[in-house]
Simulated assay, not measured.
Amino acid sequence: MSNRIDQPRKLDLVGTPVLIAGVGTGHEATLHYRVSDGHEEVTGHFNAGGGAGEVGQFQVQANVGRTSFKTDQLLVQVFEKSPKDGSEINVMTVPVLYGPRIVTGYHGYREHKVVKGDTLSGLAKTYYGDVSLYKRIQRANLDQISDPDKITPGQVLRVPMGS
């Protein structure tokens, strides 16, 4: 299998559009993508490689701006369709976090290195002016924060920013 997703990486914080990049090859050089939360999805296709087994780089923008995702967590998938029966084969999947579901007007994030005495509510006060918005930071760091009362010095947390 020669298909690989290099961007986004696992649990990256993504926005609109979702940028998908990697290397791959597919039947007649065609690969497909899907961005989904299990309820809504955006799909499309693109060419990569030369179609005769050559592997080529790809970069595609999945325009998800009009999609009403119901969760913060999305799956980005790249796959081929079987020339035999049209089934999906060589499916590559990367779970990501969708910034616009976390903060309105999402445009990126800041990184905050936790120091002794930091709390999520304190960070929410600093970055958003409201201690009750600490869940935004927790949701953007699912891979690091399982208990909002337990962050540790040295952690680098993503603080999603919006309008």
Rank of each mutant, 00 (worst) to 15 (best):
T30G: 00
L142D: 03
G105N: 11
G22A: 13
Q144L: 13
T43A: 12
T43D: 01
V114T: 02
I151T: 00
V91D: 06
H27K: 07
P148K: 02
K70I: 09
V64R: 04
K116Y: 07
G122Y: 13
G117V: 13
T67N: 00
T119L: 03
H112M: 04
N141V: 07
M161P: 00
G26P: 03
T67R: 05
G56A: 09
H32G: 06
V64E: 09
N141Y: 00
R34P: 01
Y128K: 07
L157N: 01
Y127W: 08
D149R: 14
A140N: 04
R101F: 04
L75R: 14
K150F: 10
V78N: 08
K150P: 02
V55D: 03
S146H: 06
R101V: 04
Y109M: 08
Y98V: 10
S146W: 03
T43Q: 07
K70D: 12
L75H: 13
Y106W: 03
I5D: 12
G122L: 08
S82Q: 04
G105W: 02
D118F: 08
P160K: 03
G86V: 03
V91M: 11
P153N: 07
H45L: 13
G44Q: 09
I145R: 11
K135F: 03
A48M: 01
H27F: 15
S2N: 15
T67M: 06
V14M: 09
G154F: 07
Y128W: 07
N47L: 10
R158W: 02
V131E: 14
V114E: 02
K150M: 12
G154K: 08
R136S: 00
F58G: 05
I20E: 00
A48L: 04
S87H: 12
S2R: 10
Q61F: 08
G105C: 01
T93C: 02
H112S: 03
T30L: 11
V131F: 11
T30K: 15
G117R: 13
H39M: 12
S68G: 14
G117D: 13
G38R: 13
N3I: 08
P148S: 00
G44A: 01
E80P: 03
P160R: 02
G15M: 07
G24Y: 10
G49N: 05
E88P: 07
F58D: 06
S2G: 15
F46R: 15
R66D: 13
I151F: 03
D6L: 15
D130Q: 15
G44N: 05
I102M: 06
G51F: 11
L142W: 08
N141I: 10
S82K: 13
V131S: 15
V94T: 14
D143C: 01
N90G: 10
G154L: 08
Q144R: 11
H39W: 11
I151P: 06
V114D: 04
G154R: 05
T16V: 14
S121D: 15
E80G: 02
V96E: 12
G108D: 02
I102F: 04
P100H: 09
G53Y: 01
P83D: 03
Y109K: 08
L157E: 01
N90E: 15
